[in-house]
Design a protein around this nucleic acid. Structure first.
Lengths: 164, 164
DNA sequence: AAAATTTTGAGAATGATTCTCATTAACAAT
DNA sequence: ATTGTTAATGAGAATCATTCTCAAAATTTT
């Protein structure tokens, strides 16, 4: 076993793991879209990758800026169009935070919770657990067909919460 | 005991109960706002009453139209301003449904779930149960201070769901 | 590779939301 | 009740996010 006791390497490794995980998710969403009859284009690929890779919720303008680093031709219209597609397919939610603006939270997995901080816009994912399973059962029994992979809970994270 | 076997009276009674319940809630929200230093004005009262009384999610324009039946002077600006206040205080959520438009869901009680149908905009409330209690505990343990009374789950209700 | 179809970029058009400011209403203190 | 202080309001103008338009380009199918 190799032990590297170095902050730099640890950070790099964490980053690598994160990117790898998000790449998988990006591909999963692309596959899902493709199977629903949507074409997987360069701009869409870029937008999806940007939203998934982000550790916090981005505004459409921010998504555009980051997506252009991958594909400089992407337009704002396409960002909005892709957001619509993702939302329609249940991969993305838009929830209002504060007086202005929304949180965009994207996910390819089954029903689970996202904790969105309205101050720093960070997004923490609650692992799908017994609660979400029980909730799914309850919804199912009511005949309610939910159309979102994630449920957003808005508030202040531990860091941004003055009282905590 | 008096038994009235008449559809008309049953409907009336149900309606009465509903109105009574919503009146209580309206007052509860007014009290909460007042305690937070907001003034309880006629237009605010009207807007809050309209949103709470509605059995489905309304658009701001719809809220305006209904509020004007209570207080004809209410302006659209005030509707938006009141929505902001309610949202800031955690009484109201705005979540996107479909390509255009939002659901406005208002609540004065503790953390619980709302099922919003994106087709008929109906809102069904899940009774606060062991799941929401457990969820609250989990959030608390993470140091996350949620700022909404209700969590909206978007989808199709049993009536609007073609598969169900 | 060509055909069929969807998607795109650019910028104009739209329309929801916010802003401005003089006026009014709510609340606290008297 | 009256007054003073201050927040809240209505009206419409201003802003800005979002959608629309359409010819051109990209994707997928044949």
């Amino acid at each position: 076993m190799i032990l590297i006791n170095n902050q730099k390497y640890t950070t790099l490794l964490t980053e690598l793991r994160y990117n790898c995980c998000m790449l998988k998710r990006t591909l999963a969403i692309q596959k899902a879209l493709s199977e629903s009859g949507y074409r997987i284009t360069q701009p869409r690929r870029a937008v999806i990758e940007v939203i998934l890779r982000a550790r916090r919720s981005l505004s459409p303008e921010e998504v555009l800026a980051r997506a252009r680093k991958i594909d400089p031709s992407v337009s704002l219209a396409t960002v909005y169009r892709t957001l619509d597609v993702l939302h329609e397919q249940g991969h993305l939610n838009r929830v209002r935070i504060g007086k202005k603006g929304y949180a965009l939270v994207c996910s390819e997995r089954e029903l689970h919770f996202h904790l969105v901080c309205k101050r720093c816009r960070s997004v923490v994912e609650l692992q799908p657990d017994r609660f979400s399973k029980a909730l799914m059962t309850q919804l199912h029994n009511l005949g309610f067909a939910w159309q979102q992979n994630a449920i957003e809970i808005i508030g202040l994270c531990a860091k941004c919460n003055p009282a905590g």
